[in-house]
Write a protein that binds this DNA or RNA. Structure first.
Lengths: 203, 203
DNA sequence: GTCTATATCCAGATAGAC
DNA sequence: GTCTATCTGGATATAGAC
């Protein structure tokens, strides 16, 4: 689009290089953490020189922050996708919980992201806060509203209940996948779904 | 005890040095993560030379593993202390949840430990698995048994319910404290306690 | 904008005196 | 057992040619 009628065919454009740096750096950071990632390997994986990396992203810290914030938006967004949230609670909640939990369990990249977000939350508190504010809170509030629109559910504190619901799911994913618990103390995902349905709907 | 009737008064013993290395290294690892910690600073903080550190702990990796496994045992052990678990569920569960949650929230060192355990769970899967097996599973099973001994609670899947309970608490601590959520989206701890009581006891 | 080459520093780990 | 001094590699970051 931006490069019409030029005779060069195999030379990469600048934006293509930036693209490759971003994706390559993300893979490195997700695999080795912030301190464990070297700018040499980032450049090598992107197929550019180290100086090129530095010319686009002033230093390692800024590259890391740019990446995490960019990546965060793509994560939970499609974890709770669209969130229809119309209809019978029995149907809507079961669909919501089932979908979100199964996606969390199978999305290795999301797990690596959570790992690094928590691991670096001491050194980069702004990133952690941005994640809470931009990614976790919106779905939480939407589900909260839904519960409050259904008084027949008899939920005294919807916000706390949603935190319980999300917390159960995230913690299940963390123990089973991130901390490798499924290898020594496994549990079928659907048992967790039924458990949440039972305790939230109260028969 | 081991050093009776000797005239030296200010010279440190070997075990004292090892003690200082262990505590100093733990602080460094908790503060900066595995890759972010240097053996120079570990030695400096312990007040010994780097060579002394290496003579007692063969390399950085073994020092780290020794520390995490040693430290893990002191953590959850007193988080769910003793676990009396005798008496009315209303009383026992409320006491259990209240105590555990408030301790998690106020124990900064435990939070730093969880941060590093998760952050390094990719590089050190054995440590994560050891934590699941030695620290998380025992209390889970004890609470599980307790719930199963009280059929009047009508809990179809006690193990899943306990995972929900622990998951809600750990995730609450993670979002509020580790990810700094209390600064932008706070919630009173006791609301979480009441919420769990409500959904587990079902009125 | 992009490269090669390099400056500078600090990391993990060890040799050898005491 | 403990130290000082040092080896060696790799880290972040930049200078300067093209």
């Amino acid at each position: 689009m931006a490069r019409i009628k030029t005779r060069e065919i195999e030379r990469e454009t600048t934006v293509e290089k930036i693209e490759k740096i971003l994706t390559g750096a993300m893979q490195e950071f997700l695999a080795h953490g912030y301190a464990g990632t070297s700018m040499d390997r980032v450049a090598a994986r992107a197929g550019v020189s180290k100086a090129t990396v530095y010319s686009h992203f002033h230093d390692k810290e800024r590259l890391f922050k740019a990446l995490i914030q960019q990546s965060a938006h793509k994560k939970f967004e499609d974890l709770f996708d669209k969130l229809p949230l119309e209809g019978e609670p029995e149907v809507v909640l079961r669909h919501l919980i089932t979908t979100a939990l199964h996606r969390m369990i199978s999305d290795k990249e999301h797990q690596a992201f959570v790992r690094i977000l928590i691991g670096e939350s001491g050194r980069f508190p702004e990133l952690a806060k941005a994640w809470i504010h931009d990614i976790m809170t919106p779905p939480l509030k939407i589900i909260c509203e839904y519960l409050n629109k259904h008084p027949e559910l008899n939920i005294p504190d919807a916000e706390a209940t949603v935190r319980m619901m999300i917390g159960s799911m995230v913690h299940f994913m963390m123990t089973q996948e991130i901390l490798h618990g499924k290898e020594i103390f496994p549990m079928e995902t659907d048992r967790m779904v039924e458990c949440l349905m039972y305790h939230i709907l109260k028969d």
